[in-house]
Design a binder for these strands. Structure first.
Length: 385
DNA sequence: CGACGGGACGC
DNA sequence: CGACGGGACGC
C-alpha cells in the first residue's frame, strides 16, 4: 500500500513538471507565431509554399503526411487515429506491423487532408509522453530505396563528446535524421528534469547517426571511419548499424507470440476486472460505481470523467494528462455548440482498469493552471434522460 | 457556485 | 569491447 502511494506521489511530481513543460512549450509557440518545430526534431524541412516540401535530394516531401515514431508497443492503429484526429481530419492512418507476428513495429504514418493540421500535429504531439515512450512526430519523407539502411553505428567516441559534437562531425556528409549517444544510466526521463536531479549519465562512447540518404551514410563511413576526432587520441569506428529485425533479441521464446498485445487485441478488456480488484482497498470505492452497466466500462475500455477544465481546453491536454498512465483509446472535450468553448468537462477512455485507477488516483485533485481537477470514473448522470 | 457526451451499430 | 528507451519509409 505504501509503495503504491509512493508511486502515485512520484507520478504526480513528475506529472506536474511535465505539464509545466507543456505549458512552456505552448506559450513559446504562441510567442513566435507557430511554424516552429518544437526543438526535439532537428531535421524537418521548412518549405512554406505549395503543397510539398522540397528537400536536398530534389524529392518532394508531402506537407500532409507524417511519420510517427517510438509508439508504445500496445498502441493500436485506431488509437493512433484517435490521437491524431484530435488535431484535424485524418485522411489515412497506418500502423506498421511485423508481417508474421503482427506485432507493432513502433511506427506508423498519418496523412491529413490539410497541411496546417499536419503542422499543428507536429507542434502539439511531437514529444508527447505515452506510457513509457516519448513519441516523435515529423514529416514523412517520400518513400524510396535511397533512404533505407542509412543508419550508422559509431564507436570509439571520446567520452566527453556531446550529441551536438557528434552531429557537427557528421553533418558535412548529409542531412541527419536522428542522432544519439548511449549513456550508462538510463535517466532519459526528459520531462522530469525540472527538479534538477537528472545527471546526463556517462557516455559509453557509442552512438548512432541516421542520415536521410544511404549514399550520405556511405560517404560518412568512407570519410570518418578510422579517423581521430579533434581533441581525441583514439580513432572512431563508423559502420552501418545492425538491422533491428535480425536482432539477437534473446530468442523470442514462444511466449512473445502469444503475449500481451496479441491476445489483448482479440480478447478485449473483459479479462481486466478480475476478482483481485474487487477486494482492493485502493480501488474499492472506484469500482463500486463503475461496475454498473452503461457506466465507466463500455465494453471497449473504461470511461473517465474529468471535471473543471478551462474553457480553452483542447483534446491534446487530455492526451498529455492521461497518456503517461497507460493505454488511452480516446479523449473528448465537451464544448458548447455556440461558443465552441469547453463546458468544463471531458471524457477519457482507457483500455486497462488498473491503469485507469492509477490515472484517477493521480489526477484527481491535481491543479491544472489554477483549477483543481476532479477525476473519476464516468457515472450515469445525464441532462436529457 | 458549477458536475457526466454524442454519434449512432450493418446487412 | 560496445547496438539504443526506441524497429524511420508503408512488412
Amino acid at each position: 500500500m505504501e509503495v503504491v502511494d509512493k508511486i502515485i506521489t512520484l507520478e504526480k511530481e513528475s506529472l506536474k513538471v511535465f505539464v509545466d513543460s507543456i505549458y512552456l512549450k505552448e506559450s513559446k509557440l504562441k510567442l513566435d507565431g507557430s511554424m516552429m518545430s518544437n526543438g526535439l526534431d532537428a531535421g524537418v524541412v521548412g518549405q512554406q509554399n505549395g503543397s510539398t516540401n522540397v528537400q536536398g535530394g530534389g524529392q518532394e516531401e508531402s506537407k500532409t503526411n507524417l511519420i510517427v515514431n517510438y509508439l508504445p508497443q500496445t498502441m493500436t492503429q485506431e488509437e493512433i487515429r484517435s490521437l491524431f484526429s484530435s488535431i484535424g481530419d485524418v485522411e489515412s492512418c497506418k500502423l506498421i506491423r511485423d508481417k508474421v507476428t503482427g506485432q507493432s513495429l513502433g511506427y506508423g504514418f498519418v496523412n491529413y487532408h490539410r497541411p496546417e493540421d499536419a503542422e499543428k500535429a507536429i507542434n502539439t504531439l511531437n514529444g508527447l509522453r505515452l506510457q513509457n515512450k516519448t513519441i516523435k512526430v515529423s514529416y514523412a519523407r517520400p518513400s524510396s530505396e535511397a533512404i533505407k539502411g542509412a543508419n550508422l553505428y559509431v564507436s570509439g567516441l571520446p567520452k566527453n563528446m556531446t550529441q551536438q559534437d557528434l552531429e557537427s562531425l557528421f553533418s558535412p556528409y548529409g542531412r541527419i535524421i536522428t542522432s544519439r549517444i548511449l549513456c550508462d544510466n538510463i535517466t532519459v526521463r526528459q520531462f522530469v528534469t525540472g527538479a534538477g536531479e537528472n545527471l546526463p549519465g556517462l557516455s559509453k562512447g557509442v552512438g548512432f547517426i541516421r542520415f536521410d540518404q544511404r549514399m550520405e551514410a556511405e560517404r560518412a563511413i568512407q570519410e570518418l571511419n578510422g579517423t581521430i576526432p579533434k581533441g581525441s587520441t583514439e580513432p572512431i569506428t563508423v559502420k552501418f548499424a545492425n538491422n533491428p529485425s535480425n536482432n539477437n533479441k534473446a530468442i523470442p521464446p514462444l511466449a512473445a507470440y502469444l503475449a500481451p498485445q496479441a491476445t489483448r487485441r482479440f480478447a478485449g478488456p473483459i479479462h481486466h476486472p478480475t476478482g483481485r480488484f474487487r477486494y482492493s482497498p485502493l480501488a474499492g470505492d472506484l469500482l463500486a460505481n463503475s461496475m454498473l452497466p452503461g457506466n465507466a466500462m463500455n465494453g471497449s475500455g473504461w470511461c473517465i470523467f474529468v471535471y473543471n477544465l478551462a474553457p480553452e481546453t483542447e483534446e491534446n491536454v487530455l492526451w498529455q494528462l492521461f497518456g503517461p498512465f497507460g493505454a488511452v483509446q480516446s479523449v473528448k472535450v465537451i464544448r458548447d455548440l455556440q461558443t465552441n468553448k469547453c463546458k468544463g468537462f471531458g471524457f477519457v477512455t482507457m483500455t486497462n482498469y488498473d491503469e485507469a485507477v492509477v490515472a484517477i488516483q493521480s489526477l484527481n485533485g491535481y491543479t491544472l493552471g489554477n483549477r483543481v481537477l476532479q477525476v473519476s470514473f464516468k457515472t450515469n448522470k445525464s441532462k436529457t434522460t
